[in-house]
Amino acid sequence: MSQKNITELDIKGKLCPMTFVYTKLALEKLKSGDTLNITLDYPPAVENIPENCKRQGLAKILDIKQLKDDIWSISLEKI
């Protein structure tokens, strides 16, 4: 039984494609089943990050939330 970890990633201020680059690098450090919670403020990334994670088979999308007018959070589970 492996322990599931939760990791936070703050990429506020980052634009695409760096939003995905930092997400991908963070996912690489996790084990399968671990959770990555991303905080971001660049609107196009709300679609681009999940889209690219799906396309590259990196993570499942657990949740996408708008926290404030210009702040979102995305929860991913590493595949």
Partner: peptide
């Protein structure tokens, strides 16, 4: 380095690893 190589890291087959 993350910025310099970002267009390669984005590629499915390359990544940070």
């Amino acid at each position: 380095q993350i910025e310099r190589y970002s267009r390669q890291i984005v590629l499915k087959e390359i990544g940070g690893i």
